[in-house]
Nucleic acid binder design. Sequence first.
DNA 1: TCGATTTACGCTCGACGTAACTATG
DNA 2: CATAGTTACGTCGAGCGTAAATCGA
Lengths: 148, 148
Amino acid sequence: MRIKQLEYLEAVIETGSINEAAKRLYLTQPSLSSAIKDLEKEMGITILQRSNAGVRLTADGREFMNYAKQILDQVHLLDDRFKKQQPLHQSFAVSAQHYAFVVNAFVELLKKINAPTYKFTLRETETENIFNDLRTFKSELGVLYINN
Amino acid sequence: MRIKQLEYLEAVIETGSINEAAKRLYLTQPSLSSAIKDLEKEMGITILQRSNAGVRLTADGREFMNYAKQILDQVHLLDDRFKKQQPLHQSFAVSAQHYAFVVNAFVELLKKINAPTYKFTLRETETENIFNDLRTFKSELGVLYINN
DNA sequence: TCGATTTACGCTCGACGTAACTATG
DNA sequence: CATAGTTACGTCGAGCGTAAATCGA
């Protein structure tokens, strides 16, 4: 049993669908499906009742989740205490020419992410510097617009 | 972070030595060492103070273990409830000729394991049947003695 | 130099992906 | 037939191994 599997299961139950949960977890539906299956096999119980309308907890599954939730809560406590300190410095920088559509896209991104995990930077610079920024890993993404 | 890592760490702390813990966990010392290192790196703290006399908990490590112990306790609760039901049928069988040293070794094994997890069987049979038992997976181990 | 840990590096297995299949309203 | 799920199978990385290096009493 892996902590990840419990987190996966939690997401599946919250969404009521392996498909939806897979999207939220950024993995493919078959991968998630087999991860859950592996867990069920290891525990020797059926946790989910599958149908074409999604999934529902079985009685065993409901009891299992009670235990699993306890574990996840403890894991979160530990993570909060120790883990999340330094990822604050993580940054995502874009170097681009000065164009409105770049700024718009960047703002859209900020809206979507909306988390304090990353430090976002948009460098508007000359074309040549875009290449330099990427080569020196100063920026993660470069945007060029070539007008024909 | 994996549950295994926490269990590894627990064993290391209980024994006060990566070497000893590795033996208890049936893995090699370097593997265990790097597993612990990975955990420390992920958490961004130093858990163990290494020396040529073994290891000791740092202040961070002591606090970390308080959290980890909670997680492990919850995991054990879950395992006890669901997991350990069927492994009772697991069996370990030996096919061998009738020799005192085989019986002695088998008894030694029983003493050492001393757990109700396995069903032990010793089949004393003719040489040819030893091969058959292994081929059909009836036994896990065959013992032949060739007298010169 | 002995007994502990770490570093270097190779292999295998498992986690995840893609493609194709199944089933039900 | 659309939308849920699973099965089949390939790939890549992580976990574990072995061998050699390091380090302190």
